[in-house]
Amino acid sequence: MGAIFRKEMLGYFTSPVGYIFLGVFFAASGFFFYTTSLSAGSTDLSQLFVMLYFALLILVPILTMRSFSEEKKQKTDQGLLTAPVSLGGIVAGKFFSAFVVYLMGISSTVIYALTVSVYAKPDWSVIAGNITGLILLGASFVALGIFISSLTENQMVAAILSMVAILGLYILQVVANYINVEWISTALRSIAFSSRYYTFTNGILDMSNVLFFISAVVVFLFLTVRVLEKKRWD
């Protein structure tokens, strides 16, 4: 796992992918920060975190699109899968490397929080909750993106499918609002990643939501292992 993690990290920063991810994330989050907080004269960063869902929608797929699809295309998976490493180790290495780059990106939100604290004392517990939510949301998207990239050889297909999936996980919540049947809308809301995430941005730290995202990560990574395993049996 360690070797794969290091190789992936090197890969992110010897190719443009890591820089594009970080650059665009900093630009987008900076812009949201300016419009929702600085120019509005508010120390409440929650709106920024609401908007960041859409930044992740575009950016996380870019981070994960190459993960397994590129290996398959360049036939390097043959080296990887014949090395004395477990599939779980391979998937974990890929996940944590993308996740660390993601964490580098969202670390900028800490700077924004410190910036507003110069003007007035923000509600640190709310900010901590927001950041926790963003970390968990990103982790689940990274796992989802890696899973999707294991399904295809084409990184563009992987990226687009991941974007569609993340958008779909938002739309579930919108659809829920239009459905009058109580239990269906509740069910939809409970699997919509966005509604789970927005409880964090509303300042509520609910353990069930924390567990939800952690389970999502585990499920997607487990599915990725299964996809790799199935390929051997085809």
Binding site: L10, T14, T76, L80
Partner: peptide, 30 residues
């Protein structure tokens, strides 16, 4: 797998790496 060194038909090379980086990676991987 620990007992096998495998050279597939298409060598599994990460073409963006230097030879040194690549071999160090394989060293770690194995």
């Amino acid at each position: 797998k620990q007992k096998i060194g495998y050279l597939p038909e298409i060598p599994p090379l990460y073409v963006d790496m230097t030879v040194k980086e690549y071999l160090c990676y394989v060293y770690d991987l194995k």
